[in-house]
Amino acid sequence: MGVPPLDRSRERGVTYTGRKGGGQLSAPRLRIDSPERAGLDPGELKHLVREVRALTGGADPWAAGLVLVAGRGPVIAVEEAAGWAVRYASYDQEAETGVELPPGTWVPATVDTPFDLASLTKLFTAVAAVQQLERGTLGIDARVGAYLPDFRAVVEHGLTVRQLLTHTSGLRPEVALYSCPDDRARLAMLRAEAPESEPGEYVYSDVNLLLLQHVLERVTGRTLDVLVRDGITRPLGMTATGFGPCPGAAATEDQRWPWAKADRGMLRGVVHDENAWALGGVAGHAGLFSTGRDLAVFCRTLLAGGSYGPARILGPDFVELMLTPPGLGFALDQAWFMGDLAGRGAAGHTGFTGTSLVLDPATDTFVVLLANTVHPRRRPADNGPRAAAGTWMARAVRGA
């Protein structure tokens, strides 16, 4: 049985004037209200909350701590925190278990706890890029070499901006920038990076967003952190979102060899990703910290066509461009982490540290799940809980 589309006339206060893609859109701000007011089944959402809370229980939980925010239209119907933002002091390799801090020093996760977003950062870089498309300073099918003529490999292979945004450049998944002795060597590595497979083939790659960061900084004359702050988080009032350091964030990993790529000890408030760390914490693929509430605002903005309250960060046409297959920056209809929300144009992303978000234009719903699954040590990803959250949300829409 399919998920019925939401009657958008229920969103009172939505107005749009002017030519398509060029006018102003006033969309209501998020508010906390009952599932019924959001057009969601309260019983199904209770199941969702119960299942998510259980993920932090036991001696070997899925995550030490987590935050869940979910809603429909302008209503946040679920905002829950469970477990611990900080639980472990280190990881014991011989015992293969976390070394817990004294119980009285554990830090509980709250709905206001920031988390290291990891690859959810890519979505903000993508929005910053599409903003430049809208302004005409960047071309979607322009060659990257036109903006970065000193990056000889991308010039030689004729890679395009679209290929970076859709992971079809053929570039390998990552490069070892963390192994370079200084910024000059890191830049030289990126300039020499050439595709390993035929451009046009999908290969998910952090390098795409690192190159896109350089393109954006070159065409605007501003650093990525400034572009994200001035173009996205500040106008939307996302005051808890930004590149680190973020001292109050949930802890991540006891980062040490041989399981990690750097020897840094237990991390809290500094970026987990080794390449982003090597770049000073600001990178196109990782580095942002945020809260569940702030990411709900981000999701709501895109669902409302690029506007939130009086702020407009993109026109509706350009939001549609981002969320139309194959998606620019966003993954579309991926059941492996979206569950039953996938199938009718749902968009989202996951992050290595345990983060994910899904927004579904067909049902006007969003689900944000922030967790520190790498605390105290990284392990193979288990996407089952992410997919289950999407499935419970889809059931809540169907049962309303």
Score class of each variant (00 low, 15 high):
G231C: 02
G231I: 01
I232W: 14
I232Y: 12
T233L: 07
T233Q: 07
P235E: 07
L236F: 06
G237E: 06
G237N: 02
T239Y: 06
A240W: 06
G242V: 07
G242I: 09
G244S: 04
C246H: 14
A249W: 04
E253I: 00
D254F: 11
Q255E: 08
P258E: 06
W259P: 08
K261M: 13
A262V: 08
R264V: 02
R264S: 11
G265Q: 06
G265P: 10
G265Y: 04
M266W: 08
L267N: 09
L267C: 07
G269K: 04
G269N: 13
V270D: 14
V270E: 15
V271D: 13
D273L: 03
E274T: 10
A276C: 07
L279D: 02
L279P: 01
V282M: 05
A283H: 05
A283N: 03
A286L: 10
S290L: 10
S290N: 14
T291Q: 11
T291V: 01
R293K: 14
R293W: 12
D294L: 07
D294C: 11
V297Y: 13
F298H: 05
F298Q: 00
T301P: 06
L302V: 03
L302N: 09
L303S: 12
A304K: 07
A304W: 03
G305V: 00
G306H: 01
G306I: 00
S307R: 05
S307D: 02
Y308M: 00
G309Q: 01
P310V: 07
R312K: 08
R312C: 05
I313W: 03
I313R: 04
L314T: 02
G315D: 15
V319D: 12
E320A: 15
M322N: 06
M322P: 05
P326F: 14
G327S: 11
L328Q: 04
L332S: 03
D333K: 10
Q334C: 15
Q334N: 15
Q334G: 05
A335E: 15
A335N: 10
W336R: 15
F337A: 01
F337S: 01
G339S: 06
G339W: 02
D340Q: 15
D340E: 15
